[in-house]
Design a protein around this nucleic acid. Structure first.
Lengths: 354, 354
DNA sequence: CTGAAAGCGCTAACAA
DNA sequence: TTGTTAGCGCTTTCAG
């Protein structure tokens, strides 16, 4: 009918993307031959391969990875979920992850949860929807329910966690030793003669923050220092949280002489308040953050902090994923890689100048 | 044959993801009915819809957006290419873009070029490969060749540029008025009695940096100030570039009394050098950056800079894309949205205290 | 209101 | 060495 014909003509007009079929027609071959030629199948003659590749170029052929993924059941896409993109730690992790994965033919689909559980779930759903081969994630602050993460695994999609992970989830994990980090910090403050050390903590339902608190407690005890429960305050660790909590701490009958914040942004907020109140840092109150965000070396005073090995974490997470993919069924034993933290000592905690 | 049968059994075992077909079988329907039910087709009974949706839940059905995209020729994916993710400006742009696009059923695939042309090309290829409906990009510093961007358009994929765009590319663009930004800066410095104003510029092949230089020149002239050619130096605007160039400027027989850097990171590098050399900012040399990165309000002195309206840019870029998609053929006239820049005056440029 | 059938672009048995 | 065929999961006419 005319309808059919018109449709076909229209299609030809609209068509902008050339397909494997177009190449086949142009060369008098079949799509399957072209497909094989393009993927360098051994049983295709060199002449044909050459011709196909040349034609692909002249037709500006772009392989449709979607259909290939559909057919092969493998998308070569890896979803990455991070709390927020605007953090040196996370962006550096992703950059390094991308490098490793790209080298192995994978592409990254990056999404941010903004620390929100809902957003995280939506991200997981859309990543699963586009059939990613794996998801590498650091959990949102808000997240306590692990159903969605279990869903990933139940769909047969690889899952690797980094930084913020949960032990209950039976998956590969890369992070630093949070417990030990606290020890490094407290030992250092102890050497500076601090005796009343406050802790601006993260939420206790998140393992890394729990570990930091536990390390803080144990280290204080080890150093023979008292633990002031009123000086341990949980929060989201944003700048405004740091500000608010610092103000609270200053209102205490006995002020702390040092503050250890479990995040650099919180430390920064605390520093702002201390400066506003004309309290000398570190002389009156010493301050330590966590993550080595760039601004910690720019503020005045510069802020002592913990280096979290972002580059290593990114690479190792990517490699963990690649290994899983290579042995999908193979019961490789779980990888829990714990890297060494490094204390970067700066002005904000140096009471006794050397 | 046994082969066939075994294969089928294996498939059933392996199968982890349920499909539309599984739902259909479970309910004694056909896939097409299920498809329609899930998309709320009007000619499907409410009972069926309900049953289907319930079964979808119990089977933990996850729509395969790949196959749907393949069939519909529409992926509802938007590619976003930015130079680097670790910049407040870009991450804020993306965040706002995402908000708008998600609300319209689109997902974002974010890639970073790291300012490299090669990486940018690869990103474009893989985005086209996964059949994105559109690409929203800010060009890499290195990029001078526009072939790849033209390729996007020739494939019928929507293209919107922001911040770093080129006039030759006939596409929607959102950015701020760079020329005017320079005027705001020079006028302000002129009021502070600066007479020898240096410019740490971006590369001249990028339009926004060219505009900033031109604005700088014209504004100087307008103010009756001399233009010192040796005080205009191009670079990548990284911290280390700022450091290097600042050192060069200090070696000049006649030192500048103000420095306008076309990027905050470069300004920061310059500030570091000035502090190391014990040169007072702003008394001896005033300093102004560009982009309002968070650290500009944290350094000491705080750095005067330009607010680039990242939130607006993100939203408007997303909306521009959405409009194009709604009228794919409709010859909407090109959108070139130029937002007003805002000078944020801080300590680094306030010679005369108020 | 539901079913049958074709097809999006690509790949992989199997056949020739 | 190449062609034939079927199918990945989903949508969409067109029939019933």
């Amino acid at each position: 009918m005319f309808n059919r014909l018109n449709k076909y003509i229209k299609k030809l007009e609209i068509k902008k993307k050339s397909t494997i079929k177009d190449i086949a027609i142009a060369l008098g071959l079949t799509p399957s031959a072209v497909s094989k030629a393009l993927s360098n199948h051994p049983r295709i003659s060199d002449k044909t391969k050459e011709a196909v590749k040349k034609m692909a170029l002249t037709l500006d052929y772009q392989p449709n990875t979607l259909s290939s993924a559909l057919r092969k059941g493998k998308s070569n896409l890896v979803g990455v979920i991070i709390p927020r993109v605007n953090s040196n730690f996370f962006s550096s992790v992703v950059e390094n992850m991308e490098e490793v994965l790209n080298a192995h033919g994978y592409n990254i689909v990056m999404t941010q949860s903004n620390e929100l559980y809902d957003k995280e779930c939506k991200s997981i759903d859309s990543l699963l929807g586009i059939q990613v081969d794996g998801i590498i994630a650091s959990m949102a602050n808000e997240t306590t329910c692990l159903d969605y993460y279990n869903k990933i695994k139940s769909k047969g999609v690889q899952l690797v966690l980094f930084d913020r992970g949960e032990d209950e989830l039976d998956v590969d994990y890369i992070g630093i030793d949070d417990y030990k980090s606290s020890h490094l910090i407290i030992d250092h403050l102890h050497l500076q003669n601090c005796k009343k050390i406050a802790h601006i903590a993260g939420f206790n339902h998140i393992r890394i923050y729990k570990d930091r608190v536990q390390g803080y407690r144990d280290a204080l005890e080890k150093c023979g220092l008292p633990i002031y429960e009123e000086m341990i305050i949980e929060s989201n660790l944003r700048i405004e949280d740091g500000r608010r909590i610092m103000k609270e701490l200053l209102k205490l009958p006995e002020r702390p002489d040092a503050v250890y914040a479990a995040g650099d942004y919180a430390a920064l907020g605390a520093l702002q308040v201390l400066k506003e109140e004309n309290i000398k840092v570190p002389e009156e109150i010493a301050l330590i953050g966590f993550s080595n965000e760039p601004f910690t070396s720019l503020s005045s005073p510069t802020i002592t902090t913990i280096n979290q090995q972002s580059a290593q974490i990114g690479k190792l997470a990517a490699e963990a994923f690649l290994e899983r993919v290579k042995n999908p069924k193979g019961r490789i034993h779980l990888k829990k890689i714990i890297l060494e933290p490094e204390l970067i000592i700066r002005e904000s905690s140096q009471k006794n100048d050397l």
